[in-house]
Design a protein around this nucleic acid. Sequence first.
DNA 1: GTAATAAAAGACTCTTTTATCTTAAATTAA
DNA 2: TTAATTTAAGATAAAAGAGTCTTTTATTAC
Lengths: 145, 145
Amino acid sequence: MFVSKSCSYGIRSVAYLSGYPQGKYVPIRDISNDLNISYHFLTKILQMLTANNVLISSRGAGGGVALAREASSITLYDLIIAIDGDELFTGCLLRLPGCGTKTPCPVHQEWDVARGKVNHFCCHTSVTELHQHVLLLSDNTLSAP
Amino acid sequence: MFVSKSCSYGIRSVAYLSGYPQGKYVPIRDISNDLNISYHFLTKILQMLTANNVLISSRGAGGGVALAREASSITLYDLIIAIDGDELFTGCLLRLPGCGTKTPCPVHQEWDVARGKVNHFCCHTSVTELHQHVLLLSDNTLSAP
DNA sequence: GTAATAAAAGACTCTTTTATCTTAAATTAA
DNA sequence: TTAATTTAAGATAAAAGAGTCTTTTATTAC
């Protein structure tokens, strides 16, 4: 419905990494243990982030993945685009065939405004801001009111 | 990402039905033909809408599905809740474990504001407003800019 | 009552997403 | 150079969403 589960895992992982200095390698095994995410699955997700220059990686002893740049410069927008693509920021809310700027559906304009706000705060929220929340709630606790 | 494909089909079908008087039965076969939606699949989706008192149905010759009330009183919100449930209006954008009013994630508040706008226009957009758009673009045309 | 019509219900298939398992390749340490 | 470590890559499986097909049940028309 919102970001994919893969994307959520990626976001949590990068927020976790933001507790380490930029360039410091952390084994994916540690991340998967601490955040309760399947190791091999997480490996594939983080590969997308290294391919998109959000992370760097190093094999072998002392290796792992590391932030490719300052945590404060890595935004939610970067991560969502890297893992889920731009659909969230471009698609029709109702998935109506033919909806676009030429032939907008009746909610196209209003959805565009709301989505613009989402786009804006995703571009202005860095992973450092997520760090505390992710570390405190790293288990399988479900969303609660 | 947004509403499910099933929900989109449901919305288009009810918008289609809003071209008929309330209570007038239209065979699901006609809807599936005109909107290019798989007949048997659509049957299951429309059953959800009859279960939620959005539609009424009648078997046998001269039967079909019909609007249970005035088209102008059937909103997008009604249809989304009936088919996809309330997740769109309650879930965490980032799917973060533990995110809620007690321990909100850093984008919780802003997402809530944006979503409030979505909720508002979904509650204030009736299917009659979608009728024209759905009829004109009933084929398999993909979204275009 | 019989035949035709049309939704309801159930079984089954296909695709995508999510998850697991195994092997290969690269790096470090000794 | 050998062993240990750790990402990369590939194959496979489980779960959910989407779509198809068949049978059953209810309704109408004759």
